[in-house]
Design a protein around this nucleic acid. Structure first.
Lengths: 370, 370
DNA sequence: CTGAAAGCGCTTACAG
DNA sequence: CTGAAAGCGCTTACAG
C-alpha cells in the first residue's frame, strides 16, 4: 500500500492504487493485461481507473519498459519556406509519401506501434538536431528518399535502427524500394517495339535520387539496345515535380527543338506537367508525342489521355519497411554492417492511352469504382 | 561527478557526462541550449555527444519535463478490414484527411511538436483502449470527424486536451470546421438563380456527420426559399464515398426515376461517383444533369467536366486545430466547459464547368501549374 | 496472487 | 558557472 497523497492534477497509477486499495504493481498488471490479478482485484482496479479517468503515461511506460512503441517517419517537405508560401498547393506532390505512410501505419498498428511523422526541410541548418529529437521519441526510424545524406544516415544509424525508402543499393542501412529497372526496360520495349518509336527521351527526377538514376539508365540502355535513340542531358533534367515537366517542354519548344516521338518521365507528376505543356502548344498526346509516367498514383487514370505508367506497390513498400524495422527493433542488437539488405518489390507496366494504346470503353472520367 | 559505470548499450547522459568530465546537469544544459555552460565546457560536452553518438531519450525527457512535444491525430480508417482487403485503393478517400494532417504538421513543427498519427476502425471493440494508449503518448489529441462518439470524446477530454475537426457546434470540446452553411446557400442560389434549375437534389454524406447535416439543410432550405424543389430522403443517402454516388445514381436510373436537373453532393468524392454513373448511362454533365461537390480536392480540376465545388481551407483547418490545442496544452488547466469554442473558417464557391458554367480556355488536363 | 523497492534517463530547483 | 540529489510515473524482478 502506498502512502503518497492524491495529486490534484491528472491521476497517476498511485491514485488508482489507493482508490482500489491495492499496490501500484497490481494496477500495472491489470493495465498490461496480465492474468495474475484475481477477478475481484481486477474489477476494483478497472472501476478506479474509469472513475478517475486515468490514462497511463506513455513516457513513463516507455522509460521503464525501454520500448516506446513508436516508429518515426521522416519525409522531405517539398515547398514550404516558412512564411508566405506556407500553404502552397503541395498536396499533389506528396501523394506518394502519404500512401507509403499509410502502408506503414496499417502494419505498425497491428504490432501496437504508432507513427510519429515529421517533415524536414533539407536546407535547414538544424537538420541533425531535428532528426536527433525525432529519433529520441521513437524506437526506430524510417527515412523517405532525399531527407538525409548517406553520411548522416550512417551516423544516426549508429544509435537507432534505421530503414530507408527508395535508397541506393549498398547504402549504409536496410533499404526498401520498388523495382525500377525491370519495368523501365519493359517500358522501353513497349515504346520501341510495340509502338515503333525510334526517337525517345527520359525526363529525370532529382539527380541524386537512386530511383531516378536506375530508371534513367535502364530506359536509355534498353532503348539503345533496340536500336533507338534516347535523348538525355541537362535539357532533360527535372525534379519529380509537375512544374519541372512543364518548364522542360516549354523550354524545348521555345528553342525550336524537334521533340522526340515519346517521352518517358521519372514519375507521374512530371508526366502530368509534360502533358499539360504539350496540350498548351496544341500538340496531341499520344498522337504527336507519347508520354509515360512512373508510380501509378490514383490521378493517373483521371488524366486525359489516361496515363501509361508503372505501378509501384506503394503501400506494400511502406509495410515492408515497417516489418524490416520492427525486426531490427526486436532483435535489439546493433545492425551487422555486413548484413545490410536491399529489399526490392516487384512493379508492373500499366498500359493505358498516353503511350498510344487504344482507350478502353468505360467512361473516361473515372475508371475504377468497384 | 557521477560514478555509474559506462553502459554497454546505447549511451546515456551519464556516459556523456563522464566522457566530458562534467555533471549530467551540465550536459542537460547544453542539450537544452541554455547559455550558462561556459564555451569551453560546452565544447567538451558537444564533442562527447558526437563521439558517442548520443541521442537523448525522449521518454525520459518527457517524463521529467512533463511535456512530450507530441500531438496525437486520430482519423478513421475507411476500408481495411484486417485481411484480404488490406490494401484496397483507399487513397482517394483519404486525401482530405491527409491534407488536414499536413496543415497540423506544418504549424506543430514550428513549436517543436511532432505528430503521432493513428487510424482507428470505429468497429473495433477495443477502441477506448486504443484511444487511451494513443492519448498516453501525447500532450493533446486532435480527433477527425467520425472517430468517437460525443460521449467518448467527453470522457477522454476529462484527462487530455482534445480538439475535434468538423464536429458539431456545441459539442463537448473545442472544434474547428469549414463554413458549410454560407457556401451551400450560395451554391443553391447559383444553381437556381444563375442557371435557372428548378428541380434539384442533395446527396448526403454520413447521416451523423455534422458537416453533412449543415450542408444538406442549408442547401435545401435555400432552394426552397427560391421556389425550387429539393429532393432528399433515403434514396439520396450516401456516405461521402465515390461508390455511394455511383450506387445512388444507378439505383435511381434502374427505377426509372426522372433525374433532377442538378445534383449537389456532400463532397467531391461523391460527385466523382455521380459523374461517373451519369456518363455510364450516356447522360451529359452538365447538359443533362449538373453536378457539384464540396472540398475542392486537387482532382476536382482534373475531372471532365471540371468540378464546380466549394473550396475549404483544408490545411488552415488543421493549422487552426493545432493552435487551439496548443493553447490548451500551454494553459495546462482543464478546459472550462462553458468556454468550449467552435471555430468556423471561411469557404468559397468555385465555379467551374460541372454546374453549367462555360469552360475556361486553358488545356483541360490540368489547370494550375504555377 | 500481491506488495515493496529499485530503476529506466532525463530536468530542475537548490546550494555553493 | 557547476554539481548533488530529488523526482517525473511507470514496469519488473524479487520476496512472501
Amino acid at each position: 500500500m502506498d502512502a503518497r497523497p492524491t495529486s490534484g492534477a491528472t491521476p497517476t497509477i498511485y491514485d488508482v492504487a489507493r482508490r482500489a486499495g491495492v499496490s501500484i504493481a497490481s494496477v500495472s498488471r491489470v493495465l498490461n493485461g496480465r492474468d495474475n490479478p484475481r477477478p475481484a482485484t481486477r474489477d476494483r482496479v478497472l472501476k478506479a481507473i474509469s472513475e478517475l479517468g486515468f490514462v497511463p503515461d506513455g513516457a513513463a511506460r516507455a522509460l521503464s519498459s525501454r520500448l516506446k512503441q513508436v516508429v518515426g517517419v521522416v519525409f522531405r517537405r517539398v515547398y514550404g519556406t516558412d512564411d508566405g508560401g506556407m500553404f502552397e498547393d503541395e498536396s499533389e506532390s506528396l501523394l506518394f509519401g502519404d500512401q507509403i505512410n499509410r502502408g506503414i501505419e496499417i502494419v505498425a498498428q497491428r504490432r501496437g506501434y504508432d507513427l510519429l511523422v515529421s517533415s524536414v526541410n533539407i536546407d535547414e541548418h538544424t537538420l541533425p538536431n531535428r532528426i536527433m529529437t525525432i529519433a529520441g521519441k521513437c524506437d526506430g526510424l524510417i527515412l523517405h528518399d532525399q531527407v538525409l545524406s548517406p553520411a548522416g544516415i550512417a551516423s544516426i544509424a549508429r544509435t537507432v535502427p534505421v530503414v530507408t525508402l527508395a535508397g541506393a543499393e549498398g547504402g549504409p542501412v536496410a533499404n526498401v524500394r520498388g523495382d525500377s529497372a525491370t519495368s523501365m526496360r519493359e517500358m522501353a520495349r513497349h515504346l520501341v517495339q510495340d509502338h515503333g518509336y525510334r526517337r525517345l527521351a527520359y525526363i529525370a527526377g532529382h539527380a541524386d535520387s537512386p530511383d531516378n538514376i536506375v530508371r534513367g539508365r535502364s530506359f536509355a540502355s534498353e532503348v539503345h539496345a533496340l536500336g533507338g535513340e534516347c535523348l538525355t542531358g541537362p535539357a532533360w533534367q527535372g525534379d519529380y515535380s509537375a512544374g519541372s515537366g512543364v518548364q522542360i517542354v516549354r523550354g524545348l519548344i521555345a528553342l525550336g527543338a524537334t521533340l522526340p516521338r515519346a517521352i518517358a518521365c521519372a514519375n507521374d507528376q512530371t508526366a502530368l506537367g509534360v502533358i499539360y505543356a504539350l496540350a498548351e502548344h496544341g500538340l496531341d498526346v499520344p498522337g504527336d508525342v507519347a508520354v509515360t509516367g512512373f508510380d501509378d498514383l490514383p490521378f493517373a487514370r483521371h488524366l486525359r489521355p489516361q496515363l501509361t505508367t508503372v505501378r509501384q506497390p506503394i503501400q506494400e513498400i511502406g509495410a515492408k519497411a515497417f516489418e524490416v524495422l520492427h525486426s531490427m527493433i526486436s532483435a535489439d542488437a546493433p545492425q551487422d554492417s555486413d548484413a545490410v539488405q536491399d529489399f526490392v518489390l516487384p512493379t508492373r507496366l500499366i498500359r493505358r492511352e498516353s503511350c498510344g494504346c487504344p482507350p478502353d470503353s468505360r467512361p473516361a472520367v473515372w475508371r475504377q469504382i468497384s
